[in-house]
Simulated assay, not measured.
Amino acid sequence: MAIPQVSMQSTKGQISISTTPPVQEIQQRPADLSIQQPKADLRIETTPGKLTIDQSQAWADMDLKPISKRIEEFAQQGYSDWLEGLARMAEQGDLLMRIENGGMPIADQAMENSEDPKLEFNIGFVPSPFSVKTNYERAKVNIGWQVNKPVIEAAINRPQHSYKPGEVHTELKQYPTLTIEVEEPKINQLK
């Protein structure tokens, strides 16, 4: 007995995929920043130093005195000489008053009144040491300051964002097929 033969032929289905990629753009501008630093307030008060030099003693040692000083010294010297003369005259008067006590008061007084006083001289320095007097008052400095804080202003810029989504397209490029054929057997006749 002959069985029919079945033959099948198939082709696979094919899918075609095309994509458009997504596009995303992000732009971020930097923040707007403003910084200002005011200068510090500085205050300086200075009292200048004071130097005083008194050289009047040195000038006097060199006999270079102002006229007012000379008049004062002459007045004092005259007064002291008058007092010394008065004392000497009183003493000499007392000696003459007691002439009967002996001695030679008139001759002694004549000798004393006629001689100049002995002058003494030694090594001297003109002007004398430390005759120039100095005094110094130091300067005074007062410093005051005030620090000023910086002024900072910041403005944030939002990001700029754009997005275009991607696309995927699919389609059937080739449809699947199935072909079935049945072959009838051939009958061989016996001879």
Rank of each mutant, 00 (worst) to 15 (best):
F121T: 11
W145C: 09
I143Q: 07
R138N: 12
V147G: 12
T170N: 12
R138L: 00
K140F: 00
V132L: 04
L172T: 15
L119I: 00
R98W: 03
D116C: 02
G78W: 11
V141S: 11
N113V: 04
P129D: 10
R138C: 04
I123C: 00
N157G: 01
D116H: 03
D108M: 08
V126P: 02
A90I: 08
Q76C: 01
E120R: 07
E153S: 14
H161N: 05
G144T: 04
L119K: 09
P159F: 04
I123N: 13
E73Q: 15
A154T: 15
P150H: 09
P127A: 12
K149T: 00
N101C: 00
A107L: 08
Q76H: 15
I156K: 14
L83H: 11
I152Q: 03
A107E: 07
N142G: 02
Y79A: 09
H161L: 15
P150K: 00
V147C: 09
S131L: 12
V151A: 06
G144P: 07
S80D: 04
P129M: 11
A110G: 02
H169Q: 11
T134G: 13
Y79L: 09
G85C: 10
K133C: 06
E100D: 14
K164M: 03
Q146E: 12
I71W: 09
G78S: 08
K140Q: 14
G78H: 00
V168S: 02
L172N: 11
G144W: 07
V168Q: 08
V141H: 03
M89P: 03
L119P: 08
A87P: 10
Q146A: 14
R70E: 07
F121D: 03
L96N: 06
E72K: 15
G103I: 12
I143K: 09
W82Y: 04
V151K: 13
E167K: 05
E171S: 13
V141G: 07
P117V: 07
E167L: 04
M97S: 14
V141Y: 13
G124W: 03
R70Y: 02
A110Y: 10
G85F: 02
D81P: 03
N135H: 06
K69F: 14
I123A: 13
I143Y: 14
M104Y: 12
P129H: 08
K164H: 06
L86E: 04
A110L: 11
L86Q: 08
F74T: 10
Y79W: 02
R88N: 03
L119S: 05
W82A: 15
Q109G: 05
S128C: 07
S162A: 15
L83T: 13
G144N: 10
E171D: 11
E153T: 14
G103C: 08
I106W: 02
A139D: 13
K69Q: 15
P165D: 10
A87C: 01
G93F: 01
F121I: 07
E171L: 04
D94R: 15
A110H: 09
Q146L: 15
A87H: 11
Y136S: 00
E115F: 08
N135Y: 00
L172F: 00
D94V: 01
P127C: 10
E72P: 01
D108A: 07
S80R: 02
Q109N: 11
A155W: 11
M104V: 12
G85D: 13
P129N: 12
W145Y: 15
W82T: 14
N157V: 07
S162W: 08
K118W: 10
M104C: 01
E84I: 13
Y136F: 15
G85Y: 08
L86Y: 06
E73C: 03
Q109M: 10
V126F: 09
M104S: 04
